[in-house]
Simulated assay, not measured.
Amino acid sequence: MPLLRVTHQRGALTDAQKAQLAEELTSAILIAEVGADTPAGRALAYVLFDEVDPKNSWYVGGKPDTSPPKGGRFLFDIVYPVGASMQADKTELHAAINRIVAKTLDVDGSFPNRAGDWVFVHEVPNGSWGASGQTIGIRDINQVAGGDPERAEYFEPLLAAQERVREAHGFPSEVSRANSRRSSLQSTHEHPLN
């Protein structure tokens, strides 16, 4: 269920280039998130293009970016849940996006030629993602998207470690918080305010 926002300078992409980028970037973000490009994953993968006017809304060095490199400049914001990928997967995603952009725009993608194209991976904490009216996490997403089952070898220990950190620092567990809320509600009903 990855989301990719491609912010780019107005006029940098034709409709055909957007279609090509969307197709290839969808594969790259799915492989980075769940380890597989599946039909189920594609049905849940979003690529959104946001155009920005370089004359009055895209500034570099404090000035309007009226002389961008060939192909323009791009920002890639990728959103998926914590635990979806290891650093090696993110590094490969950075490289894959660069290859895709360089090929689509017919530009030299080597560093520092495309140093102005930035890729950000934003990881949503477990329990902060919702769909269909329920809270979902990496386990659910990996299953629904038809992800690689071996991904659990990474995210299960990560989720367990996060729970141990919460326990070690005295954060209330989900069960104790739910019981506390229930007790509070019962108390309120037993002793209503006048």
Rank of each mutant, 00 (worst) to 15 (best):
F76D: 03
D77Y: 02
Y80F: 08
P81V: 09
P81F: 07
V82Q: 15
A84R: 02
A84T: 07
M86T: 15
M86F: 12
M86D: 15
M86I: 12
M86P: 14
Q87T: 15
A88I: 08
A88K: 07
D89K: 02
D89L: 01
T91V: 12
E92H: 07
E92D: 13
L93N: 06
A95N: 11
A95I: 11
A96K: 08
A96M: 11
A96D: 12
N98R: 09
N98K: 05
N98L: 09
R99V: 08
R99I: 10
R99P: 08
R99G: 07
I100E: 01
I100Y: 01
V101I: 09
K103E: 12
T104E: 05
T104Q: 01
L105D: 02
L105M: 00
D106E: 09
D106A: 09
V107K: 04
G109V: 01
G109E: 06
S110I: 02
P112A: 01
P112N: 07
P112L: 03
N113Q: 12
R114E: 14
R114G: 13
R114H: 14
A115Y: 11
A115L: 09
G116F: 06
W118N: 03
F120C: 01
V121I: 10
V121S: 03
E123D: 12
V124N: 11
V124C: 06
P125T: 04
G127D: 06
S128H: 12
S128W: 12
W129Y: 04
W129C: 03
W129V: 01
G130L: 00
A131V: 12
S132F: 13
S132K: 13
S132V: 14
G133T: 06
G133D: 06
Q134M: 09
Q134P: 02
Q134H: 11
G137N: 04
G137L: 02
R139N: 14
R139A: 13
D140P: 05
N142S: 02
Q143I: 15
Q143H: 15
V144D: 06
G146W: 10
G146H: 06
G147R: 03
G147W: 11
G147E: 07
D148F: 03
D148P: 01
P149K: 05
P149A: 08
E150M: 05
E150S: 02
E150P: 00
R151D: 11
R151E: 09
A152C: 02
A152L: 04
A152Q: 08
A152R: 02
E153P: 06
Y154G: 07
Y154M: 06
Y154C: 04
F155D: 12
F155S: 06
P157H: 07
P157D: 05
A161C: 09
E163F: 00
E163K: 00
V165G: 07
R166H: 11
R166C: 04
H169E: 13
G170S: 03
G170N: 05
G170I: 00
F171K: 05
F171C: 10
F171V: 09
P172Y: 10
P172M: 07
S173I: 00
S173H: 04
V175A: 15
S176I: 05
S176Y: 10
R177P: 08
R177G: 08
R177T: 14
A178Q: 10
N179C: 13
S180W: 14
R181Q: 14
S183R: 15
